[in-house]
Design a protein around this nucleic acid. Structure first.
Lengths: 152, 152
DNA sequence: CCTATCGGGACCTTTTCGGTCCTGTTAGGC
DNA sequence: GCCTAACAGGACCGAAAAGGTCCCGATAGG
């Protein structure tokens, strides 16, 4: 199957939780890990990657934590995945890395992947983080016991 | 990065080579492996998977081999990947397998992946095998020394 | 019958994923 | 001004999967 790693998946879940709070509010790695049901060190590692990519802002020291750097509407799933896994693309071909494939000079499919990769990236860019929030059929968001849930 | 496995990549290269021959012609696993620069056992394994999926037909015995089951225009990249890697989807969620994810009841992104997965699958379904053949800018195909090459 | 070919596994090696831990560094609060 | 709660940045490790090899059986031309 075409898969992203669990790390990217977790990252999206964590950011989704962050997007459900007032923008600018801070959350500790521990807090976000608990809410997302992800081991704390793993969540911490993810948040570091996301910070380096500029998707979240970090504050150190007491009462520090992480907060979204931008409005959830302006953060795309493509960006999140790229921040955690690197450039998006089904193959090495066409992601910009030259010489990544040693079959390059004989490959029958050479150069044909770029449009496909672009189509997939476009599909992911079109999905903002805000669209990942659980919603009721009428578009209303609900929260139960601190954990985001789809309304029954 | 979002990646398909090398196996799927090789499979597409092999089928691309097959698609450049007269339809109905047979090629041994050994022959296809040599042309695609893939180890013979690996090519053989791939061809078995593709046969099981009905994308290629096999003939045993002397002068046996593999041939495309359908016109290259009617075989999509999505089908090829699915034949080798299984169902297409960025996450387990939404590929039909219930209970695959043990975070299901707490997942903030629950149910939001299906449209994304579908968008990607659609993008891959829209690319027929015939589109993977190397072509000149005018759409003409060239072959050099038995290996498909893009015209200089 | 003999041999080239596919069919279906078992099996091994390498990579990388997923996760842990440790040692700084920063900054608020007492 | 120290103390401590938080992030920063690695090193490291086990498990799982990918990638590849090999073997033996079945089939079908010659």
């Amino acid at each position: 199957m075409i898969r992203m790693t669990k790390l990217a998946d977790y990252g999206i879940v964590i950011l989704t939780h962050m997007s459900m709070e007032r923008q600018g509010s801070l959350h500790t790695a521990h807090d976000l890990a608990a809410r997302s049901r992800v081991p704390v060190p793993t969540a911490s590692k993810l948040l570091k990657s996301l910070t380096r990519a500029g998707l979240v802002l970090s504050h150190r020291g007491r009462h520090g934590g992480y907060g979204l750097a931008r409005d959830p509407d302006t953060i795309s799933v493509a960006e999140i995945i790229a921040a955690i896994e690197g450039p998006i693309g089904l193959t090495e071909c066409g992601t910009g890395t030259e010489g990544a494939c040693d079959m390059e000079s004989f490959c029958a499919a050479k150069g044909r992947w770029a449009p496909i990769n672009q189509a997939i990236e476009r599909a992911l860019q079109d999905v903002p983080l805000s669209a990942m929030r659980p919603q009721t059929p009428t578009g209303q968001m609900v929260r139960l016991g601190g954990i985001a849930e789809v309304a029954p």
